[in-house]
Design a protein around this nucleic acid. Structure first.
Length: 431
RNA sequence: GGAGGAAUGGGUGAGUGGUUGAAACCGGCGGUCUUGAAAACCGUUAGCGUCGAAAGGCGCUCGGGGGUUCGAAUCCCCCUUCCUCCGCCA
């Protein structure tokens, strides 16, 4: 959420910035409602002042034993008028609140302007896509053939866009999680957290998922609970309504959690395989940073995610999203895209964003320097470090052999009882 | 799930209708004293909104929301969270 006073004082600049994001319509209704609200507010506050003085007076007179019936009657009329005006102000408050809550964040100056992913800017590449001496197969074929991935049975027990992993397929998922948590914990200084996978609407409001994007989420019937779409939500909200000490910043947290997305509106997209799932697991990194250094923190956060792909030997590129492709809450986002041989393209595997004070304002997360002075909103950041399901895909596809087996990268073997290769030998799954 | 109890400023904790936005203590900050420090003493110490060029007004805020009243931290209703006891349970 943007700051009310800031928007008021910079309406035109805000309008320009939002136009860059392709937000239709200007801020005319904002101007109108804001003005009218303030006009009414001064009016009703003047009346309240009169009422307060009158009440005080009545109290005094009553103690002196003076008859105050007339005074009371007058003041009652005043109170009625106040009540009426208060309701009007309330309506305008609500209108203004809705306008503000539905404005996306302003893009950082370094973000390229554009309306589609085509205007995203590739920042760097790492690794060379492997040259295959045979036609590489997609992960769903390899996985089913090896008996480590089972989409048919997942559809039976739950539905489409769910997966069952067997044997080394399941273990690989667990190995990846542990490998990533260890790397970020030991080498990058993130503290591990295990949060709830169900969150309330206040938390989702804080990160900017609600009220606008309820359709992307799973809602638990007759409750205020939702399945968390990413650990960003619980982690960021850990410090909701709290004041942190500047000396503690940056605070770096990570969590391995399931993530749930309704994927409404993506029918027909990525229908094969496990690219797009209703449930997937992810290691997520979240930072609470000082405003002065948050953009440096974004760079290092992105590097931390990249380190995972490098250790796994997976070719990727880093893309700076343009204004039109960024998420609602973000001021600047880098996507990491990993190379997928079956489609011969780079696909998103991590998204690293600086939200600046946008989420902090919504969630009321502040910091104070030396325990004194005025508190300020922190800057929040997060990034996938990285999405496990898609890493699983990338490994299977990039390390596939002509015989359909998968070579396990060196760094993961310790997490898989020393296994060097996944083969169909001894498969458990009935065909 | 059932029965009770609680929620006040950075902390502890007073306060059951009228100068209480809130005592007292602790903590924080500034000062006096001291070679320095401690102790002691004095002073100071909420947030948001709104008007104003400023100085400074004014309004709102005692878990959240509604109500009663000329007037609510105080009375009534609803909700949330926490605690205790009973039941159930991985």
């Amino acid at each position: 959420m943007l700051d009310l006073a800031f928007v008021r004082e910079n309406v035109e600049r805000v309008e320009e910035k939002l136009a860059e994001r392709g937000v239709p319509g200007g801020l005319d209704s904002f101007r109108k409602v804001d003005l009218e609200r303030r006009r009414l507010l001064t009016e009703v506050e003047a009346l309240k002042n009169r009422r307060n003085r009158a009440s005080e007076e009545i109290g005094k007179l009553k103690q002196q034993g003076v008859d105050v019936q007339d005074r009371i009657r007058e003041t009652r009329t005043l109170s009625d008028e106040i009540k009426r005006l208060d309701e009007e102000v309330g309506k305008l408050d609500e209108e203004l609140r809705q306008i503000l809550e539905n404005l996306p964040n302003m893009p950082h100056a370094s973000v390229p302007i554009g309306s589609s992913p085509k205007q995203n800017r590739e920042v760097r590449r790492w690794g060379e896509p492997r040259q295959f001496s045979f036609p590489p197969r997609p992960h769903w074929e390899l996985g089913e053939a090896l008996g480590i991935l089972d989409l048919a049975r997942a559809a039976k027990i739950t539905g489409s866009r769910f997966a069952v992993y067997w044997d080394l397929g399941a273990k690989l998922e667990r190995a990846l999680a542990n490998f990533m948590l260890d790397a970020h914990g030991r080498e990058h200084g993130y503290r591990e957290v295990l949060p709830p996978a169900i969150v309330n609407s206040a938390s989702l409001f804080g990160t900017g998922n609600l009220p606008k994007f309820a359709g992307d989420l799973f809602h638990l019937e007759n409750t205020d609970w939702w399945l968390s779409p990413t650990a960003e939500v619980p982690l960021t909200n850990l410090f909701r309504d709290e004041v942190l000490d500047a000396a503690e910043l940056p605070i770096k947290l990570m969590a391995y959690t399931p993530c749930f997305r309704s994927e409404a509106g993506s029918y027909g997209k990525d229908t094969r395989g496990i690219i797009r799932q209703h449930q997937f697991q992810k290691v997520e990194m979240v930072k609470f940073a000082h405003p002065d250094t948050s953009h440096q923190e974004l760079e290092s956060l992105t590097n931390d995610a990249e380190a995972i792909l490098q250790k796994l030997g997976l070719p990727y590129r880093v893309v700076l999203l343009c204004t039109g492709d960024m998420g609602f809450s973000s001021a600047k986002t880098y996507d990491l895209e990993v190379w997928l041989p079956h489609s011969g393209e780079y696909r998103e595997i991590s998204s690293c964003s600086n939200f600046e004070s946008f989420q902090a304002r919504r969630a009321n997360i502040r910091f104070r320097t030396g325990g004194k002075g005025k508190s300020e909103f922190v800057h929040t950041l997060n990034g996938s470090g990285v999405a496990i399901g898609r890493t699983w895909i990338a490994l299977v596809e990039n390390y596939q052999q002509e015989d359909g087996s998968i070579v396990i990268p060196e760094v993961l073997r310790a997490y898989l009882d020393g296994a060097e290769r996944i083969t169909a030998e001894g498969r458990l799954v009935p065909k």
